[in-house]
């Protein structure tokens, strides 16, 4: 296995607040890595720093061997990173189709990928002409993930996909993310430990702007003391 994304000791400020004080995350090619940690630990800030939406002041980020820190968000996205943000960021005034077409990086991306996308999320095919704003929370989340699948991405950053969704919808999403992870690597932020443990093969714990520990997911699940200490769940 090779390292696809290597985040080393990054420091990120939001305004005057020192949010990340040396976070390191490594994502291997293939499979799902999850960022775990309490609210406010810096998980979303880590994803936003990778995406270039926040600028780390120190440390380095390399994607597929090339440094990407300091690049602008669109340039980082073009290297093959898809972003599914917290709260989905669906364009409410655009139809589902337009939301998907907007994500094209090359002409014809949408046409090539639509069969795979509708197989993962059959609901979207039915809703294709509706404005994004008319979709339910679960449908919007599916659209947000689908949008990241339109171009040929090699890594998806998915932030809190299960947040605020009904259990039955969460099950559908888990199934979809499991399936798509055959084709693209995923760095996931997930508060719901049950969802995280079903999906991820590897984990990184973020704690107060640091990343004290990481490893294989099955090891973490066996170590109740560790789970209790960093996540407060057992």
């Amino acid at each position: 296995m090779t390292t696809l994304l290597d985040v080393r000791e990054i420091h990120t400020f939001i305004g005057q607040f020192h949010i990340l004080e040396g976070v390191s995350v490594s994502v291997q090619t293939g499979g799902i890595t999850v960022l775990l940690g309490r609210n406010g630990a810096g998980k979303t800030t880590t994803l936003r720093s990778i995406m270039g939406l926040l600028a780390p002041t120190r440390g380095s980020i390399t994607f597929d061997g090339a440094p990407i820190h300091g690049k602008r968000p669109h340039a980082i996205a073009q290297m093959g990173i898809g972003y599914v943000p917290e709260h989905r960021a669906i364009f409410k005034g655009l139809s589902v189709r337009e939301n998907l077409q907007l994500a094209e990086r090359q002409r014809g991306d949408y046409a090539r990928k639509s069969a795979f996308i509708f197989e993962l999320f059959p609901d979207l095919a039915r809703l294709i002409e509706l404005p994004g704003g008319n979709l339910s929370g679960g449908q919007q989340q599916m659209l947000a993930v689908a949008r990241a699948l339109v171009p040929d991405n090699r890594l998806l950053l998915i932030d809190e996909p299960s947040e605020g969704l009904a259990p039955v919808i969460i099950e559908q999403l888990i199934a979809a993310i499991q399936r798509l992870s055959d084709q693209v690597s995923v760095l996931l932020v997930e508060q719901n430990f049950r969802v995280a443990s079903k999906l991820a093969q590897r984990y990184v714990i973020i704690e107060e702007g640091h990343s004290p520990i990481s490893g294989a997911m099955p090891d973490l699940m066996r170590d109740q003391a560790l789970v209790q200490r960093y996540l407060g769940v057992a």
């Binding site: 669109h74 364009f91 005034g93």
Partner: peptide, 23 residues
């Protein structure tokens, strides 16, 4: 396409960038 980008940009510029579009 440029029209869709403009309408999307009016709603959420940051997300348009994150999709790989040079805003």
């Amino acid at each position: 396409r440029i029209g869709i980008i403009i309408r999307a940009g009016v709603e959420d510029r940051e997300m348009v960038q994150a999709l790989g579009i040079n805003v």
